[in-house]
């Protein structure tokens, strides 16, 4: 079960199929359709060398989404994972997100619960989507997982993540879901690239992109990619199909 770091009047505790999470308080939602955005960020010990760049990239991507014409139709949930999964904040409308909080998003240390982070993230999206659908909202989703290493601390497997994602689509609560895996690989390790490529296939991610330099320009590219991917997926809501891949 993820540890909860924030709760407020905009979210309510929800029991998911595998974990608990903070769901959006549906009685506060005023739009007819939402794109559920799940973002999970690696905070294992190896992230410490580029922690500030990563925090800044996520913060700027969120800030960029706040200014998007689709901002009122986005619900964002952010988690981070080291030894286990921690919820940074539950599903919130972007207007309720305080971007300054993202300065302290990750506090690197420990191992990499990569698979659990995926299962938690996608399952929370699926359960939240069901709640929205039951209340006559329409929804699609995007899940972005940022990691710099291989899984070494999970209860679940990559194939479990694939099944959770397949179940989410088959439930018909989501119009579409897009899964994106981001590898941060400043050491240009071919083993890591191969591992994450295999994870992409096993878990059913739609797209894998890799950062090969831990530089401000590389992370600026990442923040643009995240915000564009979210925006594109949200714009596709109502079309009956998901968005096309944004070029990294």
């Amino acid at each position: 079960m993820p540890r909860f770091s924030t709760t407020d009047e905009t979210t309510v505790p929800v029991v998911g199929n595998y974990f608990q999470f903070s769901g959006a308080n549906i009685t506060n939602l005023g739009s007819t359709e939402y794109t559920l955005v799940g973002l999970t960020v690696d905070e294992s010990g190896s992230v410490s060398s580029f922690k500030d760049l990563l925090n800044e990239a996520v913060k700027n991507a969120v800030e960029s989404c706040r200014k998007s014409p689709r901002a009122d139709n986005l619900l964002l949930r952010v988690t981070k994972f080291g030894d286990s999964v921690t919820e940074f904040h539950g599903f919130k409308e972007f207007k309720s997100v305080n971007v300054a909080d993202y300065d302290d998003l990750t506090n690197p240390g420990g191992m990499t619960a990569l698979f659990d982070a995926g299962v938690d993230g996608v399952d929370a999206i699926a359960v939240q989507a069901k709640q929205l659908s039951d209340a006559d909202f329409t929804a699609n989703a995007i899940f972005i997982c940022i990691t710099d290493g291989a899984n070494n601390s999970s209860s679940y497997t990559a194939s479990k993540l694939r099944r959770v994602a397949d179940d989410a689509i088959q439930s018909e609560s989501l119009e579409s879901i897009r899964l994106i895996l981001v590898g941060v690989n400043p050491n240009k390790s071919t083993e890591l690239t191969s591992y994450l490529e295999k994870f992409r296939v096993d878990a059913g991610f739609d797209q894998y992109v890799e950062i090969e330099d831990a530089t401000p320009s590389a992370f600026a590219k990442l923040e643009e990619f995240i915000s564009k991917s979210i925006s594109t997926q949200s714009q596709s809501l109502g079309s009956g199909s998901g968005s096309v891949a944004v070029t990294f």
């Binding site: 549906i26 009685t27 005023g30 739009s31 007819t32 359709e33 209340a135 006559d136």
Partner: peptide
């Protein structure tokens, strides 16, 4: 009406009736 929150009629007419 499934959800008593702002936009309840829009949701009902645009999404809910189809279900």
């Amino acid at each position: 009406i499934k959800s008593y929150s702002p936009g309840f009629l829009q949701r009902k007419v645009i999404n809910g009736m189809k279900k």
